[in-house]
Computed example of a mutant assay.
Amino acid sequence: MSAQIVVRKSADRGYANHGWLDTHHTFSFASYFDYKFQSFGSLRVINEDIVQPTTGFGAHPHREFEIFSYIISGELQHKDSMGNVEILKAGDVQFTSAGTGITHSEYNIHPTLPVHFLQIWVKPDNPKLQPRYQTMTFPKTSKTNNLVHIISPVADQDNSTIGINTDFHMYASLLEPGHKVVHTVQGIKEPRRAYIHLTSTGGNLKINGITTLRQGDGAFVTEIKQGDEIVFESVGNENAEFVLFDLA
């Protein structure tokens, strides 16, 4: 395998601090624009957000995107126009297929603790889908020194993953220092690509023994195909928590 890996440093992402919200943008979003970073295949948004206590995103609309949140720490209250109300905690992944249109709000109702999460948007293959909501929990114990499959295409998902309407897979891992996991590239459509995001919570991550990510860094991986292997190793003094997107 001759995978090409390009690192996106944490400090090179878009950044804004609104007081109640501290946010980093991997791709162009809101007032941040960089023509070189607008999307990666169907992956359109990766925002790493920290929301302060008793604040949050008021009700706002979405349509034609698959939108999901990966909770790193704290608690996030979700409410939407489909009638869903839920308190999300670390390990939860909350998924909304916005389809023809939904409205939702995301609030940190905790009195003292911030909530830290990834907000991710993916473009589905087909427009005008029926809106859908799902939450699944992937506890720390399941991700420790393991690569857990979280999202898979609806055509081949089972009860262990959340279904998405495109050729896209998401995984997550929490690697202790010195531990490794191996990902075998999935998917149907060729060529494949992958994006890895190391959360800004500590730890360093080495990819294929040559490329090292530090807190908040990401990596674009191209020149890969189904069946290739990508090796991840925690090389810092702290646990390395990361998410992996495997897509067409």
Rank of each mutant, 00 (worst) to 15 (best):
A98Y: 07
V115S: 02
D228V: 12
T135E: 05
N126P: 02
R192G: 06
F40Y: 12
L205T: 02
D246I: 08
Q52Y: 00
A59G: 09
V93W: 01
M82N: 00
G41W: 13
V51M: 11
A172R: 14
I50D: 06
D217Y: 10
H149W: 12
A172V: 11
L43A: 01
T144W: 06
D228K: 11
A11Y: 15
S73D: 05
G236E: 03
Q119C: 05
G101P: 06
T166C: 14
I5Q: 12
F138C: 07
P111I: 01
F117G: 14
Q52M: 13
N84L: 02
R44K: 13
S2E: 15
I164M: 15
R214N: 08
I196S: 08
G236L: 03
D125S: 14
Y107A: 10
I102E: 04
R193M: 14
V93H: 06
H183I: 04
N239W: 03
E106W: 13
F220G: 06
I230H: 09
D12Q: 14
S73R: 03
D217L: 01
I102K: 06
F40P: 04
N239I: 01
W20I: 09
H62T: 10
F37S: 08
D246G: 09
L21T: 11
H78W: 02
Q77N: 05
P191T: 07
I207M: 08
Y70M: 01
F68L: 12
R193I: 10
Q119P: 09
S97D: 01
G218E: 01
H62M: 09
D156V: 14
I196F: 04
F27D: 11
I5D: 10
Y133R: 02
N108C: 00
T144S: 02
I87F: 05
N204G: 01
S234F: 04
P124C: 06
V235Y: 08
